[in-house]
């Protein structure tokens, strides 16, 4: 398919580098360079080589293929930030008014890489390119998908997040933790929380997320803490562990009980029955199951 008769040859000096989208995977020096028309498609940093060599270097020009197909061959996988940058480069290099086909190229390119060229995602892509490059790299590294970044669609100016990227990058959370953290941050900022409120000295991702969660869900957090403290006042059976936990929209007591013989079980059940009576007869405890 890609035989010699399908290609032309050019020199590197005759090529442009407008499509340099900073791919994460570096182009190997062992591989030839490729171009589409006069645009280099890979090895964008080739000029860093010896000046003389580079200018003389031969570049293979794709013939009889369109731009998206060529890019897909050269860069088999692109993360969302990468395709966002590439889309931006294509739009700048081949603007609609001079290249009406470029819109179709972008759509085809996105489909080739498994991204749906939906209007909302194309808008998101333009926002992603405005993020600091280190953040884009982190998004790529953690393989965050467009749906993970949906909260960013609500932010007109992503610069408002600049104060918080440092925390994110330093904690280096997992994909799911990072996704959650970004959503919480976006919501809290849009709710009007200030930098002073949101900045916290934390060393673990878990404590950072808990901190943001407590700001975003203040009533539930307060109720859960209150319930937890009440639960601790009850006389639970020996060798048991009781705690207030949230499971989705429901919260309640999770009890772990250990017994090694039927007698211990009986004793434990008596203790639990007493707790049940205490809860019934104590309004404060009963209110744990009824919130305002």
């Amino acid at each position: 398919m890609y035989g010699i008769d399908m290609h032309n040859f050019k020199t590197l000096i005759s090529c442009q580098r407008n499509l340099d989208f900073h791919p994460e995977v570096p182009w190997s020096d062992l591989l030839p360079l490729y171009c589409f028309e006069d645009e280099l498609l890979c090895g964008f940093h080739a000029k860093d080589k010896t000046h003389h060599e580079t200018h003389e270097a031969t570049v293979i020009e794709f013939k009889n293929h369109n731009l998206p197909q060529c890019l897909k061959v050269l860069h088999p996988y692109l993360s969302f930030p990468e395709i966002s940058r590439l889309t931006e480069r294509i739009s700048l290099r081949f603007p609609n008014h001079t290249h009406p086909e470029s819109k179709e190229w972008v759509q085809q390119l996105w489909r080739l890489y498994g991204y749906q060229p939906r209007e909302d995602l194309l808008i998101l892509a333009t926002k992603i390119t405005a993020l600091p490059f280190a953040v884009q790299q982190w998004l790529t590294q953690k393989k965050l998908a467009p749906q993970d970044l949906a909260p960013l669609r609500a932010v007109n100016d992503l610069n408002i997040l600049n104060d918080y990227w440092e925390i994110l990058l330093s904690l280096n959370p997992s994909k799911s933790e990072g996704t959650k953290g970004i959503e919480l941050l976006v919501e809290l900022i849009l709710m009007g929380h200030s930098k002073e409120t949101l900045n916290t000295h934390t060393t673990t991702t878990q404590s950072w997320l808990s901190f943001l969660q407590s700001l975003r869900y203040p009533l539930s957090t307060q109720q859960d803490l209150h319930a937890e403290s009440k639960i601790r006042t009850l006389h639970w059976p020996a060798k048991s562990e009781a705690r207030w936990v949230r499971r989705g929209d429901r919260s309640g007591v999770e009890l772990k009980l250990f017994f090694s013989n039927p007698e211990e079980l009986k004793i434990n059940l008596v203790r639990l029955e007493k707790i049940s009576r205490d809860v019934d007869g104590n309004n404060t405890l009963a209110e744990l199951w009824s919130k305002n």
Binding site: S220, Q223, D249, R250, S251, L288, W289, S290, K291, N292
Partner: peptide, 9 residues
């Protein structure tokens, strides 16, 4: 949904 206790309330 809201917390189930709050819904009931």
């Amino acid at each position: 949904r809201y917390d189930s206790h709050l819904r009931t309330t």
